[in-house]
Simulated assay, not measured.
Amino acid sequence: MEVRNSANPADVKRYDTEALRGEFLIRGLFAPDEIPLVYSHVDRMITGSACPVSKSLSLKGGKELGVDFFLQRREMAVLNIGDPGTVVTDGTSRRLNRYEALYIGMGTKDVSFEPETGSTPKFYLLSCPAHSAWPTTLITREMAVKQALGTKKECNERVINKYVHPDVVKSCQLSMGMTELAEGSVWNTMPTHTHERRMEVYMYFNLPEDGVVFHFMGRPSELRHIVVRSGEAVISPSWSIHSGVGSTSYSFVWGMAGENQSFSDMDGVPMSVLR
């Protein structure tokens, strides 16, 4: 498990490209038969993946967490963006099709990801601390609350699918969903915003091999960009905007943790302020 410290915005404005990428960009996700994890001290969010191809993969706690098992004091969301695959929690098996999610409540002792012959599931993982336990629940794509935003004219036509959300499934503080851009649209979250009460992680996917997203971050008056490729994620502290423009349309998974779960609790940033 890789550990990342919190970053001060006064320091970030002095970062060069490599420092910025090293601090906020998460690479190496979706490696076959591995569970890569990045532990961020920004609200102690853990971002990772599990891709069981030839063997079962088990989620383990470690020294970084200081607990007996991974979800002893945490909750987690799993979203499958690949072929169908199976997640086993405390002996109960649930098969996740593409774009189905599983919320796993605090106190779940055993979590494993099982391979299927001829199938390559890609489980994306988000986990944050919890102080209450809620039932483990399978969330189908049909169950997700959908919200259409944007216009063709503004090149930001998109559908937000809310999976781990108070209107869908109960969680302690974790929220997670998936945004899909329409063909011909390339902008996400613009006009942009911050939310000082929550951090966020964006994981971009459904990009062609030579496709990229220019992810914008930083204080509104001190913007920086990170070039992101398919299957990579960006940690967004609460003080930073989070927006992007792609070389083509794409999808991304967003996940949040912090003081509340109100999706609309945002501090809008006027376009005139951006620098």
Rank of each mutant, 00 (worst) to 15 (best):
E2N: 12
R4M: 02
A7P: 01
A7M: 10
P9H: 12
P9R: 09
D11N: 13
V12Q: 07
R14S: 15
E18T: 09
R21S: 07
R21K: 14
R21P: 03
G22P: 06
L29F: 03
F30T: 06
P32N: 14
H41T: 10
T47I: 13
T47V: 15
A50R: 04
V53C: 09
K55T: 12
S56A: 14
S58Q: 08
K60P: 02
G61V: 02
E64H: 06
E64A: 05
D68A: 07
D68Q: 02
F70D: 00
L71D: 04
R73N: 13
E75N: 04
E75F: 00
L79V: 08
T86S: 12
D90S: 08
G91T: 10
S93N: 13
R98Q: 13
R98I: 06
L102M: 07
M106P: 01
D110Y: 11
F113L: 07
E116R: 12
G118F: 12
S119L: 13
T120Y: 09
T120Q: 14
T120I: 14
Y124Q: 09
Y124R: 10
C128V: 12
H131K: 11
S132K: 10
W134C: 08
R141V: 04
E142P: 08
E142G: 09
A144W: 03
V145T: 14
V145K: 15
K152Q: 15
E154L: 12
C155T: 09
Y163K: 05
H165R: 08
L174Q: 01
S175P: 00
M176V: 06
G177N: 03
M178C: 15
T179K: 02
T179G: 08
E183F: 01
E183L: 07
T189Q: 10
T189W: 01
H193I: 02
T194N: 00
H195V: 02
E196N: 10
E196R: 09
M199I: 10
M199R: 04
E200V: 00
V201P: 00
F205K: 04
F205W: 08
F205C: 07
N206H: 11
P208H: 14
G211M: 08
V212I: 14
V212Y: 12
V213S: 06
V213C: 03
V213L: 00
V213E: 04
E222N: 10
V227E: 13
V228D: 06
G231I: 04
S236D: 03
S238K: 02
S238T: 06
W239F: 04
S240A: 03
G244R: 00
T248H: 11
T248E: 11
S249C: 10
Y250H: 14
G255N: 05
N260A: 03
N260S: 10
V269S: 05
